[in-house]
């Protein structure tokens, strides 16, 4: 059964997926998702950070301040072990949603 939090779940899955490739700060996360989805999925600052903070609270990601070579301080996020475990059920839920939509599309109009 597709849960009510699917929309948020897919956004969480997108973030966890890009963080599986390595540590990124918020702007890089948004940019990476936009690039990898060909611009179909975009995060604004307003949509990204409340979600990141919620995920951090749940222990799925962990943010740490780091200073870059240029001297800039940025909070870089990494996926935690519990975040990695969360990716599998989130992917299943996402696939289920799209399978359900595909089934609906096959139903001929009356």
């Amino acid at each position: 059964m597709v849960g009510s939090g699917v929309k948020r779940g897919t956004a969480e899955l997108a973030i966890l997926s890009v963080l599986q490739t390595g540590e990124l700060h918020g702007y890089e996360i948004a940019r990476r998702i936009e690039q990898q989805t060909g611009g179909k999925l975009k995060f604004t600052l307003a949509s990204l950070y409340p979600l990141l903070y919620r995920m951090e609270k749940r222990g799925w990601v962990r943010g740490e301040w780091q200073t870059s070579e240029s001297g800039r301080r940025r909070r870089r996020y990494r996926i935690t072990s519990s975040g990695k475990k969360k990716v599998v059920p989130l992917r299943a839920e996402w696939s289920e949603l799209f399978e359900a939509l595909r089934q609906l599309a096959k139903v001929p109009h009356a």
Binding site: T44, L45, A46, Y49, P50, L51, Y53, R54, K57, R58
Partner: peptide, 22 residues
């Protein structure tokens, strides 16, 4: 600045995300 339509809403969402959910 286009990144944020409603700063008040963002403020509330950040507050909830960082304090209330867990």
């Amino acid at each position: 600045l286009q990144q944020v339509d409603d700063w008040k809403k963002l403020r509330q969402e950040i507050y909830v995300a960082r304090t209330k959910e867990n």
